[in-house]
Amino acid sequence: MDILTEALASMRTGRPTSVRTEGRAPWGLRLPSVAGAGFHVVLHGSCWLIPLEDEEAPARRLEPLEPLKPIALSPGDVIFLRDGRGHILADDPATPAEEERPEHFRPGSPIATVSMGGDGARTSLLCGNYHLDQGRPHPLVRQLPEVIHLPTRNGRHPELSAAVQLLGAELENPRIGSDGIVPTLIDSLLLYILRAWLEAQPPAAAAGWAAALGDSAVAPALAAIHEAPSATWTVEALADRGGLSRAAFARRFTTLVGEPPMAYLTRWRMTTAARLLRESDAPLTTVASRTGYGSEFAFAKAFKREYGTAPGVYRREARAAA
């Protein structure tokens, strides 16, 4: 069971949106905060990312945002902003930034393109955001750093570097199929980014989910929960998967995952139920059965306790908002 893929899928609320940004020095672009996760890929040239204060942030945040320093970006660099924080992109920190305007956009690309600035050095970026439900974030995402900066030069993160090169080639020279290839690559980029970051954590320093996914006791238990949320799991049964005593397993699981095994099981059952309600027409009795509840009444009671609304109401509101 690919827990990273499942965790992200549980939060996804739509396809990513993206814009290719073409700047010639001097240029500066102010980007407001978004309800999701933001990303940038430097395809050509260099620039600066200057984080803004959080006064314009969406109401829901994973964690309070900390002051951040400007970040210098070079060709091949990838930036992931966990909370979609507002920021400025510019050729130099001193360059005044302007908001996106209709006249910045031009056609002729498989995705929207913003072109701005003077006649100096050229910078080309792919910018965008992933639509993620920040109201009930998966703890794996909640534990990520606010900003992930991944340079891909000099052989670092080869799979991510290959994805960046493929994106750059499709955007520089759109051909037959580009309209389908580019969105798919952008969609896959999120998994490449997070996998590269998780695998880059030193074993001795890894903590939280970076350690849990490779832990010999916790990882098998997580895989079991994700693969069969409807099973009648107990702490003892999950501990047996990792070869630990009940008490030792419970302590290790809670330390790494951030909550006790049974609390995480309930979380994943409710997350799975919400996804089924959003994405399928399965009857409530079927949703209840697939998430470990013996009756529609017991399921509805548990769902309302977690989401604050009845399953049927949740489904109607989710469909209306889609």
Rank of each mutant, 00 (worst) to 15 (best):
A90I: 06
R82E: 13
P70T: 07
L81F: 04
D92V: 02
R61M: 10
A94L: 13
S74N: 15
P70V: 09
R85S: 03
S74Y: 13
E55G: 08
L52D: 07
L65H: 00
A97R: 04
L49M: 15
R60D: 03
G86Y: 07
H87Y: 11
A72I: 01
R106C: 02
R101T: 14
P51Y: 12
A57Y: 03
P51H: 11
S74A: 15
E103G: 05
I88H: 10
A57E: 12
L89E: 05
V78R: 01
D77G: 06
R101N: 04
A97I: 10
P64C: 00
P75D: 11
A59V: 15
D77C: 04
L49W: 00
L68S: 10
E63I: 07
F80C: 08
E99G: 02
I88R: 13
P51A: 13
L52T: 08
R85N: 02
P58K: 09
D54F: 11
R101Y: 00
P70L: 04
G76L: 08
H104Q: 09
E55V: 14
P93L: 12
H87G: 03
R85F: 03
E99A: 08
P70G: 07
W48E: 04
P64D: 06
P67E: 12
A59K: 15
I71K: 02
F105Y: 15
P93D: 04
E99K: 01
A97N: 04
I79R: 03
I71W: 01
E66A: 12
P58G: 07
R60G: 01
V78C: 12
